[in-house]
């Protein structure tokens, strides 16, 4: 290593980085290309361009393999989870970041626990609880636990945002006669856009990609996209181009968000080091 000049080292670094970059995206590029191919074209090689760009595989996946149904379930679950979690975490982040109250640290520790436990640690009692509530095999069985777990992350996320917020702004509003409710929703909320945006995209991704909870709680048409993909049986399951198209359908919403807000994603996932 010492024999290399700084300049050569820079070139070597770029070369290696590029190799790793290609290795990271190549499987997705291959999948993308395959999604537009005919089965008999597979022997041309994974990176060969489709002879003709055609959407038959997407149609097969969407209607034949019923990914439209799973897509619908995913949307029905992810929208309320994100909306509810953001509202509830904003309120609790506000409570922890702006107030001082008895029991504050104990409650925060209690919520910290939710950042560390995996779904495996709660799934059995949750399954039983949903049975008791008569909610098993309903969207509620997916939405409620997902909101509750997102609340743990969201609370820490919004709390760290609010506690670094310029206090004078809040005090000025209070002097002007704003009550706390208005301070939160009229003054702080509109100014929290960067933190909220990150929270929204992270919760969207985690909920959209969630597998274990969905696998256990629901069957049939209520399944969301990842579970629909994993449990796909029958003739489409061995049809590589259709599976590739289905994989794209599952990934596309998150990928689009990622390309727009990539910094929010990376920051948030690193900050959520304990969330896993």
């Amino acid at each position: 290593m010492s024999a290399l000049s700084t300049r050569n080292r820079t070139w070597l670094t770029y070369a290696l980085l590029t190799i790793f970059l290609i290795a990271a995206v190549a499987p997705f590029v291959g999948t993308f290309l395959t999604a537009f191919k005919d089965t008999r074209e597979l022997s041309n090689g994974i990176f060969a361009l489709p002879e003709q760009w055609q959407f038959d595989n997407f149609e097969d996946a969407w209607t034949g393999a019923r990914f439209s149904t799973y897509f619908k379930s995913s949307v029905i679950v992810v929208v309320p989870v994100v909306v509810l979690s953001v509202i509830l975490s904003t309120m609790s982040g506000f409570a922890f970041g702006m107030f001082r109250f008895p029991g504050q640290n104990v409650l925060l520790l209690l919520i910290l626990l939710g950042l560390m436990v995996p779904f495996e640690a709660v799934i059995i009692p949750l399954w039983q609880l949903m049975g008791l509530l008569g909610l098993r095999n309903s969207y509620w069985a997916l939405i409620l636990p997902q909101v509750a777990l997102s609340f743990a992350f969201g609370t820490f996320w919004m709390r760290s945002f609010f506690s670094s917020f310029p206090r004078e702004l809040v005090d000025a509003a209070v002097v002007d006669g704003c009550n706390t409710w208005d301070v939160l929703w009229r003054i702080l909320f509109p100014l929290s856009r960067p933190a909220l945006l990150s929270l929204v995209v992270l919760l969207f991704m985690w909920t959209w990609n969630e597998f274990f909870l969905v696998l256990v709680m629901v069957t049939g048409d209520l399944r969301t996209l990842p579970v629909g993909l994993a449990l796909l049986r029958g003739r489409y399951a061995s049809d590589i181009p259709v599976m590739a198209a289905a994989s794209l359908i599952v990934s596309l919403p998150v990928l689009i968000l990622y390309f727009i807000f990539q910094r929010s994603f990376i920051r948030g996932m690193i900050a959520g080091a304990v969330k896993g």
Binding site: F20, L21, A24, V25, F28, M205, W208, N209, F211, L225, P226, V227, L229, A230, S247, V250, S251, V254, L255, Y258, Q262, F265, I266, M269
Partner: peptide
Amino acid sequence: GLFIPQVMSSVV
């Protein structure tokens, strides 16, 4: 590019 696998569904 390097971070893409992290945001993909692990099922995919």
